[in-house]
Amino acid sequence: MGELVRVEHLKKYFNTPAGVLHAVDDISFSINKGETLGVVGESGCGKSTLGRTVLKLIDHTDGKIFFEGKDITNISKRENHELRKKMQLIFQDPYSSLNPRLCVYDLIADPLKTFHILKGEERQKRVFQLMDEVGLSKRFTYSYPHELDGGRRQRIGIARALALKPKFIVCDEPVSALDVSIQAQILNLLQDLQKQLGFTYIFVTHDLSVVRHISTDILVMYIGVMVEKSPAKELFERPLHPYTKGLLSAIPIPNIHHKKKEIVMAGELTSPINPKQECRFAARCPFATDLCRTQVPTVSEVFPNHFVSCHHVREINGI
């Protein structure tokens, strides 16, 4: 399958009163059609900003974004508007992401109205079809979001994203606000839709078990930079970056026979404002040397399709 999205050296800086915040710093990746790139990281690591920058919902600072082989880095407002039909966003919070004054029908029909797609009965048919696709019963057509539970609200958000028949969807923590049993229903829905309609996803989350389940490749972010990227299963079987290892060991496993290597990482995320010329993980890394504290590591392909950004990746892993 061909490549749908490619991002090269993408940077997004914000000017804050305290200095320049490096939300996304020099990240490159590509996603093939019909595949899912999982983006994991802790809160404040820039993963949501990455998703929105790729969607061109916020302006990037530097780098290039390609969509369907076309450079969309510097497109006009009009082209960006047209692009909305092809790329969409699903939000984390099914409460604040739905306008409380609109009923389900109007919420789902909103994108169609914006683009003047379909009229009258045709539009109505499309809305009902979308509701059917995401598993929303017709009896909720004129319900308001506050009358529905989190899972159903998230289904509305998904239907709204599907309305314009996009090819590429960024899911920003779509199941984090939901209970486990509902979370599983929504994950299944997203996977089924991908199979039926051939979507390509970026799946942003902090939940590693979810990301393993749904992704083809996983990109691990730490304070704006990519520390590791590899096929999903490989990342869990053979994590190479010390941060990834720490992150994986920190997940509580619902299995009492699971013996885990205890790597409790000390400290917390350092500030992404005016970062120094160093490996950003150096402050928390048990293997950090002077080299790490003076030089930014480059990304290297350690195994096929397995990228790591660490000075000492080979020594640490004995390869």
Binding site: R84, Q88, T114
Partner: peptide, 11 residues
């Protein structure tokens, strides 16, 4: 609110 961003995202 996110629904404003959602509206922007849907064009």
């Amino acid at each position: 609110n996110e629904f404003v961003e959602a509206a922007q995202a849907t064009g």
